[in-house]
Write a protein that binds this DNA or RNA. Sequence first.
DNA 1: GATCCCGCTTGATCCTGATCAATGTTGCGC
DNA 2: GCGCAACATTGATCAGGATCAAGCGGGATC
Lengths: 250, 250
Amino acid sequence: MNTAIKDFTFNSRECGSCPIRHRAVCSKCEPDELDRLEEIKYYRTYEAGQPVLWAGDQMEFVASVVSGIATLSQTMEDGRTQMVGLLLPSDFIGRPGRDFAPFDVVAVSDLTVCCFRKKPFEELMGSTPSIGTRLLQMTLDELDSAREWMLVLGRKTAREKIASLLAILTRRDATLNQLTPTSGMTLDLPLTREAMADYLGLTLETVSRQISALKKAGIIVLEGKRHVIIPDFAILMAETGDDYDGGLLA
Amino acid sequence: MNTAIKDFTFNSRECGSCPIRHRAVCSKCEPDELDRLEEIKYYRTYEAGQPVLWAGDQMEFVASVVSGIATLSQTMEDGRTQMVGLLLPSDFIGRPGRDFAPFDVVAVSDLTVCCFRKKPFEELMGSTPSIGTRLLQMTLDELDSAREWMLVLGRKTAREKIASLLAILTRRDATLNQLTPTSGMTLDLPLTREAMADYLGLTLETVSRQISALKKAGIIVLEGKRHVIIPDFAILMAETGDDYDGGLLA
DNA sequence: GATCCCGCTTGATCCTGATCAATGTTGCGC
DNA sequence: GCGCAACATTGATCAGGATCAAGCGGGATC
């Protein structure tokens, strides 16, 4: 049985120590399978606002976000849209074994993705079980996040929704940059008010009002429209409605 | 490479032709790996209302629903709860590679599950890539359903939510029983009004009112509280807000 | 510097679904 | 058959967030 690649994912940045949290194709791992990944690898860039995939499109690659941000969303005929996922650096795009994209993928900022041609990637997956295992773990993570988000959408108030979003973005940011502070955190909002609304199942006016309310309450400090300072992360967490035991990664 | 088991899942009912939609461990497939599955297999039954797993519990098995219905849900400290999944016969419970249950699993009706001890199952998975591939596909399916449900929770009106739920339950029922009609369908609601409310992010009163409204509009016919007749599935679909092209499995 | 546009904020009002409350229905144990 | 409990329906009122509308601020373009 082939276990050449022991740990990795599909992002090719920062391959120093191949930690799981980097989810990086690690050039230090095992050379032979990696060479095959390298062969089928290429980069793509998108400008802010550009679509990457429309729901129903044929997918001829799987990919990993290298830099920038994309959204995964669904739109009804009458224009109501719901974001179903936020793709940040190290996130995976694509479905091995599926031919068509199930949701719209749109670049929100300038975006670079590291693509692997789908056919050969699937073949490699078939011969390297650890890739499948890794992908299963990542998919289970995504499934858990999606289900947690269902609680936010179905049961939380507007204020709790905003607090939850800020908390999640702050956490993702901190783990990506390997920070572990608990207070005095900072966050550059990657989304417009409208995009936040689409993520939270609200209108942009409500988003704006609730952000103002959190600001007035001193729970966040705004510098400009997008730069958020969080004086005390625990206080923000208290607004989410979730129980919180103190760690950043609770 | 080991490909003994070509297609299967983890339910052991109706193994006649081993179609993907049965998701059955098919005793007609390949004997050697199946024997190993049989070795680590056992059944459990739960009464209606009984918990199967609480979030945070150690999981020592993975399982597949044989008969009955269970729910996957999350509850906030103040009691607000959100259902994040409905487990019907053939659905899979468990996370290979994870030790703790992420959500509550509760039997809604009398429930029988077919369990596999987790450790040996994971070992079998490691040596039989097709199991991992199959599980990845199933997990991707669940992820897509979860994301579709996010649109329901975030953007649909109460009436659309009810219609969506009825449509989904009807479809699942039809595919499980291999029916392919398009009209004159019938559905026995497996859920109380409260459970429906928890699934849809509504209150039970709103669920009741909207069901009455659909009844008054002739979109559904009720016999008793739980038995629903759907005179025209397309008309029901029109109430969901989704686009619908005519097939039952659109 | 003037203008425009986009993203955002704020205000006034409306409406959907929540909440509170009473009543109805069904099934079960006795 | 009676009483009880769980489930369900219906009504009255309330409130949170949507909708409609006006205006602000800052960056890009001319």
